[in-house]
């Protein structure tokens, strides 16, 4: 009995160390939050378009899967992600829309004129309300919405080549985005 009790501390420690080792595995980011919105209907939004007088609204975009990217001109990682978005936009089956999060429209426009505009349409979310409804907690964030208007996936932080190839594009194919 005494021996068993004496073994308890080292046993508990090994369990703890196991957890620590698990948390150090490559690719694990404790800061990343899963979205609470997965498989729920995308929140309604109806935003002024960045260019022209049109509007970018959820209900107007329904019918086919789409990718919504929250960005801002003041966001450094957005610049890093941008070339990837440009390439992504060239693929015929990807309907990529942008939402300019808490950004002055003229700044967003300058940002896009410098780096290129990958989006089919851009909504201006000046006060960040749409971002709040989506559960955005830092830009860039990218959401995949299916044809019925349900959020299927969220990418936090800048998209990577691997995330696009292994997750985003296969998901779009499954959703029948072609």
């Amino acid at each position: 009995m005494r021996r068993l009790i004496a073994l308890l501390p080292v046993g508990l420690f090994l369990v703890l160390a196991g957890y620590f080792a698990w948390s150090l595995r490559p690719g694990y980011d404790p800061h990343e939050l899963p979205s609470a919105m997965i498989d729920r209907e995308a929140p309604a939004f109806d935003l002024a378009a960045l260019a022209g007088d049109g509007r970018i609204a959820r209900d107007g975009l329904k019918g086919q899967p789409l990718v919504i990217n929250f960005f801002a001109s003041w966001c450094v990682p957005c610049r890093q992600e941008h070339p990837l978005l440009m390439r992504l936009a060239k693929q015929a089956n990807v309907r990529l829309y942008g939402i300019a999060y808490k950004d002055k429209p003229e700044d967003s426009a300058r940002f896009l004129s410098q780096l290129g505009d990958p989006y089919r349409g851009i909504g201006v979310d000046r006060d960040g309300r749409t971002g709040l409804d989506f559960g955005v907690y830092g830009v860039p964030e990218t959401y995949v919405v299916d044809a019925a208007g349900h959020i299927r996936k969220r990418f936090v932080g800048p998209l990577t080549e691997a995330a696009v190839e292994k997750e985003l594009l296969p998901l779009l194919r499954r959703l029948g985005g072609s």
Partner: peptide, 17 residues
């Protein structure tokens, strides 16, 4: 590295106001 950038971004958010 990617993550560092994200932190920078968040800190910018913090600074915005």
């Amino acid at each position: 590295m990617v993550f560092r950038c994200f932190v920078v971004c968040i800190s910018l958010l913090l600074l915005a106001i």
